[in-house]
Design a protein around this nucleic acid. Structure first.
Lengths: 277, 277
DNA sequence: GGGTATTTGTCCGTATGTATT
DNA sequence: AAATACATACGGACAAATACC
């Protein structure tokens, strides 16, 4: 073992032992000597490898790697190098992206990358507008409808989406399907235009990253320490009069998602397809 | 103290002691009982408060809070509730956003929010195109120019930006200022159009979140455990012929940045200004 | 299904080092 | 210089989760 022992260097303060161990393991991971999915030596084996350090010390080293998502521990089993997830790329500048909950649009976008999409039936709730009231320019306490869906890709939980609409859309009598718990294959946008003549002419997206809440941690099967954050994209859509017609909040784990958007004239992206064109 | 003692509940497996302590402290933080900036009890005081738990156990609780960015520890001083940072919002759909390095455009965008912007002089490098070659559709090994800048808001390091241009822009003789280490107040885009007639007509942004590298950790003064990630926005800009004319990579810490973009017709946002209009 | 071995998780006490006031 | 507070490191004991027979 080539680790520098604590205190053996005169010039500067030596790194703590657990960091030396962590750095050594990290180097082995990043160089490929420890490939993704491979099990690390057990804590007792690591003790022997690293100068008979205490088990708690090698555990500190492993914790350091865990905090950086380089390894994951499975109780009773071992510690393993994490595998890279093939990220899914969402286009934010097409109507089929965030906010259009229709399974058809979603499916066409996902299958373009040869992946298997799945959308849960929406869960409908009717409540008083709370914090979202101002974003929809509704009075505090006005009634609204929310439609919540879970989305999967290749059976992996990929995003959680909740859309909020004014209850007046339903009260006016036209948009009765808004409060029915079934998917609207062509999307709510199309439905609202057909039924109420309300036309979506633009939207604003706000992107933040935050810690997941317990619901999200469970659904996405994230580690219960907070090391995997989530994107939160809040899309406010407007009609021709500049009035917000809905708010869609979509949450994506950062470890499996990316976003792309185009402005102005942009050539079509060359997809990495294997066709012999 | 109202914590449930380990093992005292019959029905289900009790939470570990350190989690109970952490949850209790978390509740106090989120309820405001422990306000941002306030010092937590010291480890020895926490021992007494929580049933004479071991110091190592209360430290585990504090570590759990630290990993979630709820508290931060200062050696020799104490543990403190973290203060919220007022996030800076970047518009991605205006040319003054990412990629336009001109200090004028940047300053106008930032001061709109009454903040003090600052941009370092660019560091110029000329190298062989490596991984960025394909994004600029250049041959592997072609020469390119990079311009790197550090940006601050209210003296806080806010973003790191590097733009890559083909060296042919300079070789052709027109764009000589591209390789001079001074800011271009009106932006490079304007300069290229004036000098070479190369007009930027659109761009594509790709947004990801990743761990900071050591350079970024130092510059942004991030904690050296990896709990604050960074946005990486890669903007490829295209000219009228659909050829990429530059690649701009900008890195922002997620704890102090948000992004907004508009599509279609969107009413101007009502800023939360204090004027009595 | 049950039992056993393996491996990580929790908790303890103690000692010493380092940073700050 | 001394006191305070967090950081590192050690060793030990038992619990909980998993795999395997």
């Amino acid at each position: 073992m080539s680790l520098v022992l604590l205190g053996s260097l005169g010039g500067h303060v030596a790194e703590p032992m657990y960091r030396q161990i962590a750095d050594d393991l990290r180097q082995k991971i990043e160089s490929g000597a420890l490939a993704p999915g491979v099990q690390l030596p057990t804590e007792l084996e690591l003790r022997e490898q690293y100068n008979n350090a205490s088990r708690n010390t090698v555990r500190d080293a492993v914790k350091w790697l865990t905090a950086r998502n380089l390894v994951e521990t499975r109780p009773g089993h071992g510690t393993f190098v994490v595998g890279k997830i093939d990220p899914f790329v969402t286009n934010l500048d097409v109507a089929s992206g965030v906010g259009s909950e229709g399974v058809t649009a979603y499916a066409s976008e996902v299958t373009a990358g040869r992946r298997k999409p799945e959308v849960s039936a929406p869960r409908i709730e009717i409540h008083q507008a709370g914090t979202v009231a101002s974003e929809l320019r509704m009075a505090e306490g006005a009634t609204m409808v929310s439609r919540h869906q879970q989305r999967f890709i290749d059976d992996i939980p990929w995003s959680l989406q909740t859309s909020f609409y004014p209850m007046s859309f339903v009260d006016r009598g036209g948009a009765i399907e808004l409060i029915q718990a079934k998917d609207m294959p062509d999307g709510v946008v199309r439905y609202l235009e057909d039924q109420l003549g309300i036309k979506q002419v633009g939207w604003r997206d706000k992107i933040t990253v935050r810690m997941p809440n317990p619901t999200e941690t469970t659904f996405f099967r994230l580690p219960d320490d907070g090391r995997v954050a989530v994107f939160e994209i809040r899309r406010t859509a407007f009609d021709e009069s500049g009035t917000p017609l809905r708010l869609t909040v979509t949450v994506y784990p950062i470890d499996r998602n990316q976003f792309v958007m185009n402005f102005g004239n942009v050539p079509v992206e060359i997809t990495e397809s294997a066709d012999a064109g």
